[in-house]
């Protein structure tokens, strides 16, 4: 759409600007403030320069948490994206099945995150949970509290349970936008199922898949509540992701300097990801 140049539009944006500045810029400046200062209490601060940043970047704790985050995001993307495509391809296109699928599949997306954690915490327990009890009954040793591998499996299955539907719904939205004429043409040409997927469905899903990929990557990169409820970051530090580590440092230990430096580094990574998201969005908007 052709837009007219009008700087008075600023007045319409002003309320948003003021509100978001209040809830984003002021807190962020506090973080910047703490990240370059040190204190011995009594609200007396002195300049610490880049000390905290160096301390954070040189600590194993930061790199370990970051590595865990990246491994977690990598695993869930590798599972959720193909699984989401597979389910979307097999979803009914018309009839009663459509609303039934949409409603039931959306359900996990709308559950509060700590309740998602609670559901899986209970579900996986060997004494009272269906999953834990069943595994125990058929002789599979399973304990997400003590066993690192089991804790990771639980978190990954939980995330698949929680978020695969998002990938499914996005892919489905891409698929239903394909006109029937495309499929008819493919049928006349005698195209195989694979060719239909590769040359008709996949190109049409490119945009939604990009959105799904970026959203899942960013949200899994910030994951806090679900692992906090299920494992609390344990056993040991095995599931301590960046968010959990940050909250531990800031609110648990009240180490403001390192926590602020960590926050800023974390925020810069997110900023970079948002920029990629934005560029992808505006580019594909321009194409369509």
């Amino acid at each position: 759409m052709e837009k007219t140049w009008n700087n008075k539009a600023w007045f319409m944006v002003l309320p948003v600007l003021v509100l978001v500045a209040f809830s984003a810029v002021i807190p962020l400046m506090t973080v910047v403030n703490y990240s370059v200062q040190d204190t011995f209490g009594n609200n007396e601060f002195f300049w610490a320069g880049t000390d905290w940043f160096i301390q954070v970047l040189q600590s194993d704790r930061f790199w370990d948490a970051l590595t865990r985050n990246l491994i977690f995001s990598g695993i869930i993307l590798a599972i959720e994206i193909p699984l989401g495509i597979l389910i979307a391809l097999n979803m009914p296109k018309k009839g009663l099945g459509v609303p039934v699928c949409l409603v039931l599949m959306s359900l996990p997306l709308l559950i509060p995150w700590n309740v998602v954690g609670t559901i899986w915490q209970v579900f996986g327990r060997v004494d009272i949970g269906l999953l834990g009890y069943t595994l125990d009954a058929i002789g599979v040793p399973y304990n997400y509290v003590n066993n690192v591998f089991d804790a990771w499996v639980t978190l990954i299955v939980m995330d698949i349970w929680h978020w695969t539907s998002l990938v499914v719904l996005l892919c489905y939205a891409g698929l239903v936008s394909i006109p029937d004429a495309y499929y008819q043409a493919a049928k006349i040409d005698g195209a195989s199922r694979w060719a239909v997927f590769r040359y008709i469905q996949l190109p049409k899903m490119k945009r939604v898949l990009l959105i799904a990929f970026l959203l899942r990557f960013m949200d899994s990169f910030m994951i806090y509540t679900e692992p906090f409820v299920v494992t609390g970051g344990g056993p040991g530090n095995a599931t301590t992701f960046l968010s959990i580590d940050l909250v531990k440092t800031a609110i648990g230990q009240f180490d403001l300097g390192p926590a602020a430096a960590l926050s800023l580094i974390y925020f810069l990574i997110i900023l970079l990801l948002s920029w990629i998201f934005y560029t992808v969005m505006t580019n594909s908007d321009a194409q369509s």
Partner: peptide, 15 residues
């Protein structure tokens, strides 16, 4: 605005 939608709540809790 988008960056704020993507901001990790953990960063903002203390401030």
């Amino acid at each position: 605005l988008l960056t704020n939608r993507m901001a990790p709540p953990a960063v903002f809790a203390l401030p």
